[in-house]
Amino acid sequence: MGDQPLVRWDWIASHLVDPIGTRLLEHLQLSITPILLGLLLALPLGVACVRWRALYPPVFTTVNILYAIPSIALFFLLLPYTSFSAWTAIIPLTVYTLAVLVPNVVDGLNQVPDHVRQAAEAMGFGPLRRLVQVELPVALPVVIAGLRVAAVATISMVSVASLVGLGGLGQLILTEGFRRQFPTPIVVGIVLSVALAFLVDGLLVLLQRWWTPWTPRPARAGGRNRRSAAASTAAASSAADRPAAPEGRRRRA
C-alpha cells in the first residue's frame, strides 16, 4: 500500500454517507436480522429440548455441526438458491447463532430452581402459563448472556459475506480497500465493525438491567440476608454478569 498515510481524513469526509453510512446500515441489518431470527428459532427449540429431554443431544450435535461448517462455504452453497439477496448472508448467520442460543435457552430453563418450578405448579399455573410467566422470565439472564455472545460473533462474521458480494462493512474493507490497495476504508471498516459490536453488546447489557431488575448485583454480593437466595440465584447472576456461552467465544472469520 506504498507510502500512503494509513488514514486519509479527506476520503472519510467525502465518503461519509456513501459508502460508509450505507455499508454501516447494511451491516447492521445483516447482523440484527440473524440474531433476532436465531432467537425466534432458539426459544421454541430450547423449550422443546427441555420438555423432551431426548431431543437435546441430537439438536445440540446438529447445531454444533452446522456451526463447524465454514461460513464461506455456506455462503457459496446458498448462492444458487438465494443469489445475491441478503438471505445468502442471513440464513447461515442465523444457523450459527443457534449454536450459542439453543444451549443457553436450555441451560437457562434448567437453572430455574426446582422449588420455584414446583411452587408455580402448586399455586395453580398451567404448563403454558408457567413457561411464559415463570420459567422463561427466570431463564432470561442466561438467554441474554447467550444473545450477547451471538450478537458480537454475528457482527464480526457479517464482513465475510463480502466475499459473495454482500457483507456491509466487509465490502468497505474488501472492495474499497483491499482491491484498490487503499488502507483508509480498511481501517474505517474495522473500527466501525468493532464499534458496532461494542454498541450492540452495551445495549444488550442495558436491556438486561432493565428487564431483569431482580438479579443480584455483584456489588451487593456477600452481604447479609443472602443465605438461601444466594444458592438459587447464583447461577443466574454469574451467567448474567458475563457472557458465558456453553461453547465459549468461538471466533469465526
Partner: peptide
C-alpha cells in the same frame, strides 16, 4: 384445585423475578 389450596414449599420457592 391448586388455586383453592395454599401451598408452602421448602426454601420458600419464591419467584425470583
Amino acid at each position: 384445585l391448586r388455586r383453592s389450596i395454599g401451598y408452602v414449599i421448602q426454601q420458600a420457592g419464591l419467584f425470583p423475578h
